[in-house]
Design a protein around this nucleic acid. Structure first.
Lengths: 211, 211, 211, 211
DNA sequence: TGTTAACCGAGACGGTACGTCCTGTCTTAGG
DNA sequence: CCTAAGACAGGACGTACCGTCTCGGTTAACA
């Protein structure tokens, strides 16, 4: 899976092309600054300086701080988040929950994720960007997990009558619970907690099918 | 339950006392500004102007924007969030989920809540303030719901062996799921969705007890 | 004659009053920067830094670079330009021409004067400011010189029939000639040149009276 | 007399030759931009765009804004400024003063002239360029006027003892007075004022000869 | 009943970041 | 070698808020 491409300019192919090095340097500098200063302390001028790039170059590519941070953080999700095959639905869920929590505890993402989501509450384009760059890429993990469980016989196969929003709800529950635990309750997501959440979900999903 | 009082000054009781009108006017102005400008656009200078108050007065009472917003929003949770008794655990959960979603969709809270949580990721005192003013007041709803369910016989009575973090997890799951649905997925929380979540939880909780 | 007062704000007498020290420091810093960097190189940010003052303080008092420079330079004209009484009209003119040329050769004024006049060509308020702060204060020197010459008997006394714009023209000729000599022709204004100009003027004025 | 040619490149004569159209378009665009925006608002990027030319092309031909403006304005002086033969020294002077004032009131020159002179105070090459392209071409008018006056018998013929800087001073006085009147005093140069200046000068020159 | 200390409004203060603009150079592709 | 197009590093711009401060003036409890 390749990293999200930089926002494609719809120009003619004339003039000096944009430097790909600059893109890389900027995103790297952004993550570095997030670690050191947090989202609030992050300054576009500072990022530009770290990247050895002029502020204008930065503004030419991204509309502002929010979009830049989304792109900078998206790459981390890309490479870090996957669904391990651990032999059972419960173990799979536990595994992905632990990895997700680990990701949320990285200093780059800790402050950045909530902040951009907050900004996005009144910024539809930003909301779409977050979905495209981060959320939707996680969502397929739910689908994958379901398919594996169905192959194992842990869940009944689809028969065409199931709720189409079913996987979306599972995703909201998993992601939301972990985020709330980490960000709001400030409690650790350890193996035990992850297992109990997995247990609750497995039982709950069973209940949904039974209904 | 009265709204959280402004931080008490520990002075001698001499001199002119602080104006209580000012407090009210400031919190009201803050909510008004949140609706019009969102969290990011909210300015302490602007709030002061709306409240007909000097910036100094404002800074004398609150350390900064974050704390002010927490207090301004807390009152809303106080008055709006309660657990209706609808006759069954599933219906109770559905009911509180719908009320919570409604609260999250108010313009005052929509942007403010996520924003202060984001700020709180690197600000322990703010995190505590949020817990004291908002989160903990919701948490007792979980306890209340459990007790009702136990009275009804929907859940087994406590026998002293249960996980002490059990209710915390339920709270993280409920609150987190709704927040994620509303804020990140940008999908509506309607009666159907709330009911399905309630169903999943009831079954899941059952699974926890069975384990 | 006191130095030109800072632009008077028409506020109420409320709030913290503006610092008089800041005014002094800013004007001094402006002159210093003019010497070191010239008008083109002068930056309001740099002036603020030199004066130990915030940029905002500077913008609160002056609309921009042009007005600031006018005020900074005006003080020099105030203190340096006077009409010596040397016993004859011709010597008086020679004297004032030499002083004026000297002033134009100071590094503060050399670059600043022409620049603000240039800017003023499309900025009526600036033009007025220049007249008020600099030009009009010089103009009375012409009147003073005429009166002395009339007392000495070098010129006939006014009889009420003379051209009201007469002194204005003399002023334009004296000031314009010196400026052009120094700025455009880049030739020195030495005693001889000044004396020849004085001679031309005395004769010319005589011609005007004769007409 | 043709307009001053652009600085000749001393390259080999290989490769694609420079477009002469471009030169014309650039100078025209410069004058147009001067009228619309004034000197301060004039941008090389904007001039390039108006001329339908790349910025590179512009920088290849002129070192910067100042030089470009000098060349763009010089052509106007070339074609507009001449010494009419009106039968007497006084009338000749009046005539040239009126034409010069007219030139100074054109929007292209109004702001441009003072600005480049101001820039030239700390830029010797620019000063030379101004002299070559503008000032020296005017100076011969003084010589021409003197010769005509001598032919008419209004002035004594040269006898080899006269001051060599004599004509320079006349030039400084005429040009400086008009510029000061127009630019600084912001008063009109009408027929009456021009005549009075001519009268003063004729008498003054007489005084110089008598000395 | 006057003192007095803390309050209040207003607004200036030193700072910091903003997002835009222009400069003069460069790097493309094409003539 | 020139051209158009446009990206590049750099730097100043003028604005907006921040959180602090300094004023003159007000208000209520205490003496």
């Amino acid at each position: 899976m390749r990293p999200s491409p930089p926002p494609v300019p719809h120009h003619k192919r004339t003039g000096r092309p944009r430097s790909a090095d600059a893109d890389r340097a900027i995103l790297e500098a952004t993550r570095e600054a997030l670690v050191e200063l947090g989202f609030g302390g992050l300054t576009l001028g500072d990022v530009a300086a770290r990247a050895g790039v002029a502020k204008t170059t930065l503004y030419r590519r991204w509309p502002g701080k929010n979009e830049l941070v989304v792109d900078a953080v998206a790459a981390l999700f890309e490479e870090r988040l996957e669904l391990p095959d651990l032999g059972s639905l419960r173990a799979d869920i536990q595994g992905v929950v632990l990895r997700f929590a680990e990701l949320l505890n990285m200093p780059e993402t800790r402050t950045a994720l909530m902040a951009v989501v907050a900004e996005a509450t009144s910024d539809e384009p930003l909301r779409r960007r977050i979905r495209d760059a981060i959320v939707d890429r996680q969502k397929h993990l739910v689908l994958l997990g379901r398919m594996r469980a169905q192959e194992r016989g842990e869940l009944p196969p689809d028969d065409g009558t199931e709720d189409p929003g079913r996987d979306d709800m599972i995703f909201d529950v998993v992601a939301g619970s972990v985020v709330h635990r980490v960000m709001v309750s400030s409690e650790p997501v350890d193996e035990e907690w992850a297992d109990r959440l997995a247990l609750l979900l497995v039982a709950g999903i069973g209940g949904l099918h039974a209904a």
